[in-house]
């Protein structure tokens, strides 16, 4: 478990957490299409990023701007910074660190598919902010979850094949844990389609144990990042470490426990590749 993942102290340190979250969640759609991602609503978004040299420059500028957000400005909620985490850490954060947990509607899926799914879990500060924003409130109202329910909810989302992600309010305060999917998630989409680092990779990398693997191929379809290939000549999957986000979905699906998560920093090639 990473030392960055703490809740209470960070909440007390930044007394503007609630203001920040209100601005951020209130204008989420605008921020996604707006200046933080280097995009505008005038239909020209992707083209600018795909132009060979100019696109690379824009990407570099935006990524630099996002990095700066580690010293957050309370009045300008700009990025929506997140990181992929495996199931165990998501459970640890929800059960041990959070005080109040509520279920909210996913704004990303509403934007991209027009459907209302309760797949986001907001914590203490966000739970105070969300009632002001009617867009995120489910039909039955905001439900407060106890730790058992929250754990069951996370297990359920994992079975459905959704990636757990933490979303920071002002960094390092964890405001929410979402269950994301490519291409519906705003953050994963900007990361994978346009190369803008709105979501960081997880702290781990999945590794296959060739002695335990029986070659059933269940893990291949679970990967949302295209990191797993099934090689029929050696009858086991190959994991591309450079593409792996360390979400652990493949690990949960493996009945033989042949996949384990290794610390990203232990492998020299992927050290610091977030």
């Amino acid at each position: 478990m990473n030392a960055r993942n703490y809740l209470k102290e960070a909440d007390e340190k930044y007394e503007y957490t609630r203001d920040y979250l209100e601005v951020l969640w209130g204008n989420l759609e605008r921020i996604y299409l707006g200046k933080a991602m280097g995009m505008s609503i005038n239909n020209t978004i992707g083209y600018r990023l795909k132009i060979p040299i100019i696109g690379r420059m824009i990407k570099w500028m935006v990524n630099k701007k996002l990095e700066k957000e580690k010293n957050p400005n309370p009045r300008i909620a700009e990025g929506h910074f997140g990181q992929v985490i495996p199931l165990e850490e998501a459970k640890l954060i929800t059960t041990n660190l959070a005080d109040v947990r509520i279920k909210a509607l996913c704004p990303c899926r509403y934007m991209h598919r027009g459907i209302k799914v309760e797949s986001c879990m907001g914590f203490t500060a966000l739970a105070e902010v969300l009632p002001k924003l009617p867009r995120f409130i489910p039909e039955n109202g905001l439900e407060i979850l106890d730790s058992d329910k929250a754990e069951a909810f996370l297990n359920n989302m994992n079975e459905e094949g959704k990636v757990h992600t933490i979303w920071w309010g002002p960094i390092p305060y964890i405001a929410a844990i979402c269950s994301c999917e490519y291409p519906e998630c705003l953050g994963l989409r900007t990361r994978l389609d346009f190369g803008i680092k709105t979501v960081l990779k997880g702290e781990y990398i999945a590794v296959v144990n060739p002695n335990k693997c029986i070659g059933c191929g269940k893990c291949v379809s679970r990967c949302q990042f295209g990191a797993i290939n099934f090689s029929s000549s050696i009858n086991r999957p190959i994991i591309d470490a450079k593409r792996c986000f360390g979400c652990g979905l493949c690990k949960e699906s493996c009945e033989e426990q042949a996949i384990r998560l290794v610390d990203r920093d232990e492998i020299p090639i992927t050290r610091g590749m977030y």
């Binding site: 605008r30 795909k50 291409p183 989409r189």
Partner: peptide
């Protein structure tokens, strides 16, 4: 997912007035 259901300039906070906009024609 080229299309996005998103806000119009006048009404931001009410999703009932949102429109479908082809935001990612590059994809």
């Amino acid at each position: 997912v080229v299309f996005v259901l998103t806000f119009t300039d006048e009404d931001y906070h009410d999703p009932k007035n949102w429109k479908i906009v082809p935001i990612f024609p590059i994809l």
